[in-house]
Amino acid sequence: MPDITLKAKDVELKLDGFYLKIDKLSVKTGERVCLYGPNGSGKTTLCKILTGFIKPEKGSIKLFGRSLSELNSKERAGLINYTCFDTSVAYVDKILIDFVKLGAYVRRSANGIESEVIDVLKLLGLESKKEQVVSTLSAGELQRAIIAQSLIQRSKIMIFDEPTAHLDIYWQHRLINDINQYAKDFLKTGIFVLHDLNLAINNFDRLICMNEGKVQADLELDSPEKKFKAIEIIGNLYSIKIDVTQHKRKVIGVYF
């Protein structure tokens, strides 16, 4: 397995009043990356370019050494998926267990999917709701259901766009930890778009800060010193003053 799972080069995209340019971006196998930046900085657009849903005007994207454009739908979806919160998926109105199973479309064999779905639902605290119709779930529950659907897909690279947006504080932390654990168990690479500073600083190998369609900073987060440095850069990015403290192994930024 090559060390680099995902590589983007000279990607350019112009939309009305928005210009995105990524000179170079690469993600290693098993790495967990957090994409961070202000609203409208191009995080979601970048994610969708990486999955091929949005076609850039220029540039190349390679997954495991293969160009994104030469992959067919199934191959692509086996390598990379993208998950964001979208209430309209509940329009399918299936019972939860069938809803989650829809994510297994690219899996070669359906053997054992049933029990795997139950495991994923347990992981995300939805086991008691498995027979419930998805349109009756709460926003936070639906969000976890969509994440469950993505986990069952077992793509090698998983992108989660604001996976904690509708979750309570318990689930915000639990979800990031659980997905990270799941990713570790199945040797997956994870890219997360997050806005919570402390979640972003303490749970990932790397932090990529974006601003105005460009990568502003690309930082490793493997030591408290580097986390301090990351918080300083984020403070500058938003022009806010962030006080930093250290609690056990976690680095915590506080801002008012």
Partner: peptide, 17 residues
Amino acid sequence: IDYLLLGEERSYHIGFE
């Protein structure tokens, strides 16, 4: 029909044509 109801973008990422 299931995947159409799920939505085009979501189905794209799941790998359904």
